[in-house]
Write a protein that binds this DNA or RNA. Structure first.
Length: 256
DNA sequence: GCACATGTTCTCGG
DNA sequence: CCCGAGAACATGTG
């Protein structure tokens, strides 16, 4: 899935159904690459927990429970966290049955997603290595992140240690909107360019959130529906449209 | 069969 | 140790 806008959309929607509810039972597994915390332990930890809040760090979400423990999850490329009971199709890794007759399901075909239990007394290396969140990135913080970097500005935007939350789609969109070539040396941007880029990143991410994110293939909101921001892309997924001005001037139809 | 896919992490070379 | 490029991870789709 999912870059910051898609993850933020899921966060907000999950919170609406999950907050204040207790996990009464859970189906977790089978073991795979997907589980940082083994399914058997994860299940023991999850059942009985009541959700206080869900926080987002770049593209990573962390559920905070009443007892202080946390549940970290990442949607990877094809993760879907929905507020319904999905049929077991071999790609559903987690089903949570909540009080109030609500059910949550986490499905991920490619299993690049991750789920991990974080004990209340411990830190999470996964969170600690993330750079500042892109949704609120200041011009100054972006400049600090890019300073001295020899790599391309596109690669720098994708590096979650420098700035967290931006992926392929929004890196392309933000650079295009800023009129900065993706192959420019990251540390070579002028202060003015950096300022324009920081503004574009924030603005585009916010607009994408307002549209429920971008659906390219797998991403869905918690109600199972696609996002809409893909129809507003100026460059991502539109290589052919660039050389066909009559097509590029209008938005494509939603996929469904 | 081939190329490619919204992401992260590990390896290798400098 | 730092940095950057490319491969690997698992699976589906066009």
């Amino acid at each position: 899935m999912p870059e910051l806008p898609e993850v933020e959309t899921v966060r907000r929607q999950l919170l609406r159904v999950w907050k204040g509810r207790r996990i009464e039972s859970a189906q977790v597994g089978p073991p795979s690459y997907f589980f940082v915390t083994p399914p058997s332990r994860l299940k023991r930890k999850l059942v009985g927990q009541t959700l206080l809040d869900i926080k987002r760090y770049g593209k990573t979400l962390v559920a905070h429970f009443e007892d202080g423990d946390r549940f970290l999850f990442h949607l990877g490329m094809t993760g879907q966290f929905v507020a319904s009971a999905l049929a077991q199709d071999g790609h559903v890794h987690l089903i949570l049955h909540l009080t109030g007759n609500k059910t949550l399901s986490f499905r991920d075909v490619r299993k690049f997603g991750k789920v991990e239990w974080i004990d209340k007394t411990k830190n999470s290396p996964r969170l600690d290595r993330l750079g500042p969140d892109a949704l609120a990135i200041s011009s100054e913080d972006l400049q600090t992140a890019l300073r001295g970097r020899k790599t391309s500005i596109k690669a720098a935007l994708l590096n979650q240690k420098l700035l967290s939350g931006v992926g392929n789609i929004y890196a392309d969109e933000a650079l295009f909107a800023s009129k900065i070539h993706p192959e420019r040396v990251a540390g070579g941007l002028t202060k003015k360019e950096t300022n324009i880029l920081a503004e574009a990143v924030r603005r585009i991410l916010e607009q994408a959130i307002a549209s429920g994110g971008s659906t390219i293939s797998d991403y869905v909101q918690t109600n199972g529906k696609s996002g809409n921001y893909q129809n507003h892309h100026q460059v991502y997924g539109r290589a052919s449209a660039i050389s066909a001005p009559n097509v590029s001037s209008e938005c494509r139809e939603p996929t469904k």
